[in-house]
Design a protein around this nucleic acid. Structure first.
Length: 440
RNA sequence: CGGGGCGUGGCGCAGCCUGGUAGCGCACCUGGUUUGGGACCAGGGGGUCGGAGGUUCGAAUCCUCUCGCCCCGACCA
């Protein structure tokens, strides 16, 4: 993509409403624009990141055996009356009336919808276990949206739902998703710690929040330091594998959010030098709630003995749009964003320091073409800005690699390759830079 | 919802107290000089001051109502 053809409205100064760093940087880098309180348009650069995250989440869901579908954003109120949550959910649910005066709502979550779908589509014990998911926009009419995309009213969420015959089986589905979450965050370059959590309005008795530590986190969290050292297992698992021992690596160590925190136990279980108390951002939440919805909504399946059994369910959410902000909170410096390669909107920023200079133009065009042809994503700054402005912009938008080409270096046949994260630079020949990326 | 604050060009702000028909920096356009970490000079374009009503010869400025946005709290992926 050429900057001269792109849409990336950079702000030199942050709008005053943006308080936290990720919000400021997203606005400044031209990733998002607010439409109304807690509701945002995603501009090209932001959308690219969102899609990249979404894709990683999708791949790990698929790998964990979940099946993707897509449910609507607007749901009929009757479904929620059936589960009893229409009245329970309160003002956070955006209620709408259609032209026929029917009560509708903009879905804050999808337990009812998926349960109705599964109820109609599954008859036999042979139809379980299944885990279904979708990645869809949700709306929760927060009393006070804030922190930009981290706490918006409209947000993109991956939510998965597991259906099993027995609670024991259900726990397996839960564990499998637990590991999928660890993998997902690890791939995103985040260290997410599962913590025992309150189940809130979703209900149920088994629940974990996945928390990443960041100064700007909205809640206080407490955990054992060793949890930060654990790596997600890389091998695949089947539904019937016993994951308890694997999960135990995480569950054996103390980790709790404010609401679940037990100071005495924390001090008893965790040596003083291993005690971490910090701020955290919740980037995922998983629940096992058994038959809470399947019973009231009559979602059952016939067992081998012919008896009808209400299915055992869990639900598993990842805030995809929130992750965009969370990653920035975890990865930035004074100059701007520092994208992990896997989610970066482009891998390489190619900076032409002197547009109009024959040799520089030629070198840049050639690099752009070769790298693009080799499958690299390149943002080529072919604009007429001055060098300084281009550097600032590149640092702000945080592409992992910058290739800087100007007459001075090209006199020696060299361009500069700069790593955004480490700020390391090296001078390479034109062929060498291409090689660097093509062979890597 | 309770408490606080703000709405003046794309962004940041001044003007409002002491009414006289809008200004500054950045951004944008044109020309020139510049050109490796947000250049300089000159010349331009763009707002009717969130909205409605009122007071007044005259309202961004005063009064009333209203809408939106932000911050603190309760709530949340």
């Amino acid at each position: 993509m050429r900057v001269s053809q792109f849409f990336m409205p950079i702000l030199r100064d942050p709008p005053k409403e943006a308080e936290i760093v990720s919000h400021r940087l997203m606005l400044r880098a031209g990733m998002i624009r607010q439409s109304s309180s807690g509701i945002y348009s995603w501009l090209p650069l932001g959308m690219m990141v969102l899609k990249n995250i979404e894709q990683i989440v999708r791949e790990e869901q698929n790998r964990a055996g979940a099946v993707e579908l897509l449910m609507p954003t607007i749901q009929p109120a009757d479904l929620w009356r059936e589960s009893g949550r229409y009245d329970d959910y309160g003002a956070e649910m955006l209620r709408i009336t259609d032209r026929h005066d029917r009560d509708m709502l903009y879905g804050p979550t999808n337990e009812e919808l998926i349960t109705a779908l599964f109820r109609d589509g599954a008859r036999s014990y042979r139809d379980v276990p299944r885990t279904l998911y979708h990645i869809q926009w949700k709306f929760r009419d927060e009393i006070r949206p804030r922190f930009g995309v981290m706490r918006g009213r409209e947000f993109l969420m991956k939510d998965a739902y597991s259906f099993d015959l027995t609670a024991e089986e259900g726990k397996k589905s839960y564990n499998r998703m637990f590991l999928a979450y660890l993998r997902t965050y690890e791939r995103l370059g985040l260290k997410a710690i599962p913590m025992r959590a309150d189940t809130g309005p979703i209900g149920g008795d088994l629940s974990h929040e996945f928390i990443i530590l960041a100064d700007t986190g909205e809640s206080e969290v407490f955990c054992h330091k060793d949890l930060l050292e654990l790596d997600a297992p890389t091998n695949s698992f089947d539904h019937d594998d016993d994951l308890e021992p694997v999960i135990a690596l995480w569950l054996d160590k103390y980790a709790a959010t404010e609401e679940m925190h037990n100071k005495e136990q924390f001090e008893k279980d965790v040596p003083a030098d291993k005690q971490i108390s910090a701020r955290g951002i919740e980037v995922g939440h998983i629940f096992f709630f058994g038959t809470k919805y399947t019973q009231t909504m009559k979602c059952s399946v016939q067992g081998p003995d012919g008896a009808l059994t209400a299915l055992q369910c869990g639900s598993y959410g990842i805030g995809v749009s929130r992750l965009v902000g969370a990653i920035i909170e975890a990865s930035h410096d004074d100059a701007g964003i520092i994208w992990p390669e896997v989610v970066a909107p482009f891998k390489i920023g190619l900076v032409n320091l002197k547009v109009g200079d024959d040799e520089t133009d030629k070198a840049c065009e050639s690099l752009y073409e070769q790298l693009t042809n080799a499958g690299q994503t390149v943002l080529y700054d072919d604009s007429n800005e001055r060098a300084g402005a281009k550097f600032k912009t590149m640092d702000l938008i945080g592409l992992p690699w910058q290739i800087i080409a100007g007459p001075r270096g090209l006199k020696e046949g060299k361009v500069e390759l700069k790593n955004r994260a480490s700020a390391e630079t090296k001078d390479l020949g034109l062929d060498e830079v291409v090689q660097y990326f093509v062979s890597a």
